[in-house]
């Protein structure tokens, strides 16, 4: 008898047993979303009123006002400085931290503190860290730079450690068998295996630092964010629009540059 002649041909049958825990979790999630939305007072009335306000807001933003372009340019330049300086020091510091956090190369008593540093760096949003640094070192770009260095260590350090944990230990073993000291094992057995990925992480972080450098200004940590916030509070919506357009332009240009950078290291 051929399979085609079997009874119930084409009927679908389940493979594996249904997971009741899984179904219960999905149902729970659906219930919670409905409940949480009901608490937030989301109504169609508010939605339509919001549409009206939005139209007025956009109307006041147009046309963008570029008359204060000198302020705009100097603030953007400061944001760029914050991003690039923070990325540089972030990379330099995250290299050792990431290496020390790699569990396949380091003993537990080394990886544990390194992982703690990374976890602490990752716990807070850069804006919260920036608030702390503004209190510590005062208003200005230094606070922003320090905040973004912390963010960079958290991001690059974690991904770098994970990349090292995925390398082929066979290549490392060969270098070890030649009697090479530990530093040479790292430079010849480990780094070649993770270099392209590391450069990828660094350019992503530069990208992300550029975005965040426009934001730390909101809490007084330097860059264009401060001016943006002030313009909002003074209802200078046409200047706000000019700032937003300038930020978009900078981010897009940076995107192109970092993509090129990444491609050249492949």
């Amino acid at each position: 008898m051929t399979p085609d002649a079997a009874p119930n041909r084409g009927r679908l049958v389940a493979i594996g047993r249904p997971s009741w825990t899984g179904r219960a979790l999905w149902a729970g999630l659906a219930l919670y979303v409905v409940y949480a939305a009901s608490l937030l007072d989301i109504t169609w009335q508010r939605f339509f009123a919001g549409l009206g306000h939005g139209t007025v807001f956009i109307g006041r933003m147009l046309p963008p006002d570029f008359t204060r372009w000198e302020l705009l340019v100097s603030d953007l330049a400061e944001s760029l400085e914050i991003a690039i300086v923070a990325t540089f020091f972030g990379i330099v510091l995250s290299l050792p931290v990431g290496l020390l956090a790699a569990r396949n190369l380091m003993p537990l008593w080394v990886t544990w503190p390194a992982r703690l540093i990374i976890a602490v760096c990752r716990s807070f949003h850069p804006v919260i860290v920036a608030i702390l640094f503004v209190k510590a070192v005062g208003f200005g770009a230094l606070a922003g730079i320090l905040a973004l260095i912390i963010a960079s260590i958290g991001f690059i350090g974690k991904l770098f450690a994970e990349a090292i944990e995925e390398i082929s230990l066979k290549q490392v073993e060969a270098i070890r068998a030649s009697g090479a000291p530990f530093a040479n094992i790292i430079t010849y057995g480990v780094l070649p295996q993770v270099l392209t990925r590391f450069i990828g992480f660094c350019t992503y972080q530069l990208d992300s630092n550029l975005r965040n450098s426009t934001m730390v200004g909101l809490v007084g940590a330097g860059g264009i964010g401060g001016t943006l916030f002030a313009a909002f509070q003074r209802f200078d919506y046409d200047f706000v629009c000019a700032i937003l357009l300038a930020i978009i332009a900078v981010i897009m240009i940076a995107e192109v540059i970092t993509t090129r950078l990444r491609a050249s290291f492949q």
């Binding site: 290549q171 009697g179 090479a180 000291p181 010849y188 295996q193």
Partner: peptide, 28 residues
């Protein structure tokens, strides 16, 4: 350093050049 080893799966450093792989034998 005085013991050379040849491996089943070659264990070359894949992303280094051939000549760099040879020089890896001198890293000690």
């Amino acid at each position: 350093r005085r013991i050379g080893m040849v491996f089943q799966e070659f264990n070359l450093v894949e992303r280094l050049t051939v000549i760099e792989n040879l020089l890896c034998g001198r890293l000690g």
